[in-house]
Design a protein around this nucleic acid. Structure first.
Length: 428
RNA sequence: GGCGGGUUGCCCGAGCGGCCAAUGGGAGCGGACUGUAAAUCCGCCGGCUUACGCCUUCCAAGGUUCGAAUCCUUGACCCGCCA
């Protein structure tokens, strides 16, 4: 582990396509080789959970820890209240303080799962920038910090410049870079942190911190940014039909999470593996060959889905989800699937329950009840288009009503919309 | 502060007072072809007890009219020019 040199670490980042920009590379490598570097990345609470878009930089923190460095995960309890203008062309809507502090708690525990906290020299550290901004007065901010910032430079930052040419920017968001620069300075002082990483849109905010450290402490620190992942067709990564793919199992089920990765296109899967996987170069190169030679086997997709699901949800959950997929997609005839297997599989997909005492409703009702379609109109449409299945058998009659005889093991109905959207009805 | 322009469905964007649930593009969804892939072709794309029927939509609230996304008034927000 300690055998990983700064050069090797950066070369790996380059090979993976992660490295976007860094401050002087030789100096950065020299500092990495001089001993464990304390490196930080900030995560603002903009939602109740992190999503897979956050994973790239979060895993970078983990890569640094594996290489012997000391990761600091910072939750933006303060910056989240203000709103980062980077990468946005319109002002954010401010959320209530209580809401944000709830998000901070959730995100904090998510971050902890990816890093190692122990007694070692490179144990991870959690920080919250609210700790050093809460008691800061406006006058202190203006006199002690603000004096070191040139508005001319602030206006030149990409995040601000684009907004000045477009939808405008509030003083609140304009000040964001000051807060983030303060964070870097604060961590430099408290934790000896000399490296900040982030997505490529964070370059301006990070360098603002470098300047501040130089001016106030005459210190030197480094910046490293990572590429934002794009799909091969140029669309944004990480969105599925239901919106973002979340790490919180209550927001994106482990089953859906696995399926997201598993369904990734051939043209993207190797880039994803490089971005997200901890597999070594030889393994990934080998998977690339397999995609070319036996694309239908989806070896790379399966590898990726398995690694990501295990990482985020654990090995046991991953296995359950894989068994579910095998049961639901494997055999044409669902009645051949054993009851316990089927019951376990259906636990993973969206489902609705109806009382045994009730008459079975029509297929339209059932589809809508599980949420695989948004409305009864949509359910009708799906049936009309030939995209509705009951127990893997296509149903084309809009008025179709299942009977008791359709129940698998006397309790389940497996509904499907299109090729891969599966849901379940349980009679109990 | 003054003058002018704007606010349309997930996004961009058209829209003559009736023929507007609203052109077009993108995204999304279904089908065919495949491999739970891509590309391509076809179809769908507000809701409802599927109804050439009804209901809720075109920033908000009022108004004019037999009838308004389209006209008027007020308000909110955005953009531009001038001070």
């Amino acid at each position: 582990m300690d055998a990983v040199t700064g050069r090797e670490l950066l070369d790996d980042f380059k090979w993976r396509g992660l490295l976007a920009q860094s401050t002087d590379e030789d100096a950065l490598i020299a500092s990495l080789d001089a001993g464990p570097v304390s490196v930080y990345i900030g995560f603002d609470p903009t939602a109740p959970s992190l999503h897979i878009g956050h994973l790239v930089v979060l895993l970078a923190l983990r890569r640094f820890q594996l290489a012997g460095h000391r990761p600091i995960a910072l939750v933006g309890g303060a910056t989240g209240l203000v709103g980062d203008p980077s990468g946005r062309n319109s002002e954010r809507i401010l959320n209530d303080e209580e809401v944000i502090s709830g998000w901070v708690t959730g995100i904090r525990s998510q971050l902890e799962a990816f890093l190692v906290f122990d007694d070692s020299a490179n144990s991870a550290v959690m920080a919250n920038n609210l700790d050093w901004t809460r008691s800061l007065t406006a006058l202190e901010l203006l006199r002690d910090i603000g004096k070191h910032f040139s508005v001319n430079q602030m206006l030149n930052k990409d995040s601000v410049a684009t907004r000045l040419n477009g939808g405008g920017i509030s003083y609140t968001e304009f000040s964001y870079q000051v807060l983030q620069a303060m964070d870097f300075l604060e961590l430099f002082r408290r934790e000896g942190c000399t490296l900040q990483m982030g997505g490529s849109d964070q370059w301006g905010n990070i360098t603002a911190g470098l300047d501040l450290i130089r001016r106030v402490e005459q210190g030197s620190a480094h910046a490293l940014t990572m590429n934002l992942l794009m799909k091969s067709d140029g669309t944004k990564f990480g969105k599925s039909a239901g919106g973002a793919v979340w790490l919180d199992p209550k927001m994106t089920s482990p089953y859906a999470f696995y399926q997201y990765w598993f369904n990734c296109e051939d043209a993207d899967v190797i880039a994803y593996l490089k971005f997200f996987s901890f597999a070594n170069h030889a393994t990934i190169d080998d998977l690339a060959v397999q995609v070319l030679e036996h694309p239908a086997k989806r070896a790379a997709q399966r590898f990726l889905a398995r690694e990501m699901t295990t990482l985020v949800h654990g090995a046991e959950e991953c296995e359950r989800v894989e068994l579910a997929a095998a049961a639901l997609f494997g055999l044409g005839d669902l009645s051949q699937v054993a009851e316990t297997t089927l019951a376990g599989a259906l636990l993973q997909v969206p489902r609705a329950t109806i009382a045994r005492s009730m008459e079975l409703p029509g297929l339209i009702e059932l589809l809508a009840a599980t949420g695989v379609v948004e409305s009864k109109s949509a359910a009708r449409r799906t049936i009309r288009e030939g995209g509705a299945y009951l127990n893997n058998v296509k149903v084309t009659d809009e008025a179709f009503v299942p009977t008791r005889g359709d129940l698998l093991h006397d309790r389940f109905l497996v509904l499907r919309r299109g090729k891969r959207d599966i849901a379940a009805i349980e009679v109990s």
